[in-house]
Simulated scan of single mutants.
Amino acid sequence: MARIIEVLPQDSEIEELTSPKNAQAANAMKHRREVKRRLDDYLERAELRKALGLENDEDF
Rank of each mutant, 00 (worst) to 15 (best):
M1G: 14
M1N: 13
A2N: 15
A2P: 15
R3Q: 15
R3A: 15
I4L: 12
I5K: 13
I5M: 11
I5H: 12
V7S: 05
P9Q: 09
P9I: 11
P9K: 09
Q10Y: 06
D11G: 04
S12V: 06
S12M: 05
I14W: 00
E15S: 08
E15V: 07
E16C: 13
E16W: 15
E16I: 12
L17M: 15
L17S: 07
T18S: 09
T18Y: 08
T18M: 11
S19P: 02
S19N: 13
S19R: 14
P20C: 00
P20L: 00
K21D: 12
K21A: 10
N22H: 04
N22W: 03
A23D: 13
Q24F: 13
Q24Y: 14
Q24V: 10
A25Q: 15
A26Y: 13
N27H: 07
A28H: 08
M29F: 04
K30T: 05
H31F: 06
H31Q: 07
R33G: 06
R33S: 06
R33Q: 10
R33M: 10
E34G: 03
V35D: 07
V35Y: 04
K36S: 10
R37C: 06
R37G: 08
R37H: 11
R37V: 07
L39W: 00
D40Q: 10
D40P: 03
D41L: 06
D41I: 03
D41R: 06
D41A: 11
Y42A: 15
Y42P: 03
Y42R: 15
L43R: 13
L43W: 14
L43N: 11
L43M: 14
E44F: 08
E44H: 12
E44S: 15
E44T: 14
E44G: 05
E44R: 14
R45S: 07
R45Y: 11
A46Q: 15
A46T: 04
E47A: 12
E47F: 07
L48E: 15
L48G: 11
L48H: 14
L48C: 13
R49S: 02
K50A: 14
K50N: 07
K50P: 00
A51M: 04
L52W: 04
L52D: 03
L52P: 00
L52V: 00
G53Y: 00
G53C: 01
L54H: 02
L54D: 02
E55R: 00
E55I: 01
E55L: 00
N56W: 01
N56D: 09
D57M: 03
D57H: 03
E58R: 15
D59E: 14
D59R: 14
F60T: 04
